[in-house]
Design a protein around this nucleic acid. Structure first.
Lengths: 165, 165
DNA sequence: GTAAATTGAGTCGTGCGCAATCGGATCGCG
DNA sequence: CGCGATCCGATTGCGCACGACTCAATTTAC
């Protein structure tokens, strides 16, 4: 049974106090963490969402399981972004020379995204990026794992709930 | 019809994978939670950042401590948003009839933001919004408090670190 | 008292993030 | 085989976020 939240009245326990809200904490933390990434990723000429796309591509590449390269939809599934976000982003990555976009020959609706040599070469130097960012959070390894798992659970709960509609 | 985001079928165990990273968990959770807010706030014709601004204004209004109304800068300090984001946002809130902007007479650089009657009247019906959202996360109250505090700590740590430069 | 520095709001450009929509490609079923 | 339903990607439009900048008002330093 869901536990009840105290009644929303006024005064000291004002439920509408911004800083009391988990949602604001999440919103603020996300932007703060992006602030940490920005100068680091700037060294590589990347934005945070672009970096995430590369992470997925590196991951798929390393798996080396003989699958075809990921399509725009598959990247969207991995990052939960839709084509309206990914299409222009991938174009910018292509202009930067890090990825290639190519129509699938088997299904010409699909666009397969592959890493260029330059995109592949970025992987090694960027290996230390996560460590540098994590240090800025000031959290212990255990706290980080707990935080990640809680956040992941929240995300999955929400997605399960909304996919039912 | 909107682009549907397919389920991401792979395991969570890839050591260097996107899904292992706290940063991605934060990024994804923030967007998932916004997905929960969107339809609810749509009923009031608001976006999430606009709702946050109203939260601060309601809070200040309830405090009734005789202070002057918050300025754009003070709203920015509360939400950690700069004038480049707030100025157009506040204009939209003004067009919507929820907020008034007025130059301070004592310092004409400042713009004071006050609630209109319509903006004030929105407070009561929106009291249930946080509860409805929190239910969607599927977390207990204790977990929520812990999550909020951890996130707040991360945010503060980052800000202390970056403000030193 | 005036020049220099600072502060506060606004504007512009770039890049997400999402809704809505379009057009082409494929699939399902008769 | 034919045709409608479905799927996929691209595109468009809007609203954040943020950096860089402008401009005016105020504060300071001398």
């Amino acid at each position: 049974m869901r536990n009840r939240i105290a009644r929303y009245g006024r005064g000291v326990t004002d439920p509408l106090g911004v800083r009391r809200q988990v949602c604001f904490a999440l919103y603020a933390a996300q932007r703060a963490l992006t602030d940490v990434y920005r100068p680091i990723l700037d060294e590589f000429g990347l934005t945070y969402p672009q970096y995430l796309v590369l992470l997925v591509l590196w991951e798929r590449d390393a798996a080396g399981d003989g699958r075809t390269p990921p399509t725009v939809s598959e990247l969207g599934a991995a990052l939960r972004l839709d084509s309206g976000t990914l299409s222009p982003l991938l174009k910018r990555l292509e202009v930067a020379g890090l990825v290639r976009r190519r129509r699938s020959t088997r299904d010409e609706r699909r666009v397969e995204v592959t890493l260029t040599d330059a995109g592949l070469a970025l992987r090694q130097p960027m290996c230390q990026v996560p460590r540098r960012v994590v240090e800025a959070t000031g959290l212990t390894e255990a706290e980080l794992v707990g935080l990640r798992d809680t956040l992941t659970r929240v995300t999955e709960t929400i997605h399960r709930a909304t996919e039912r509609s």
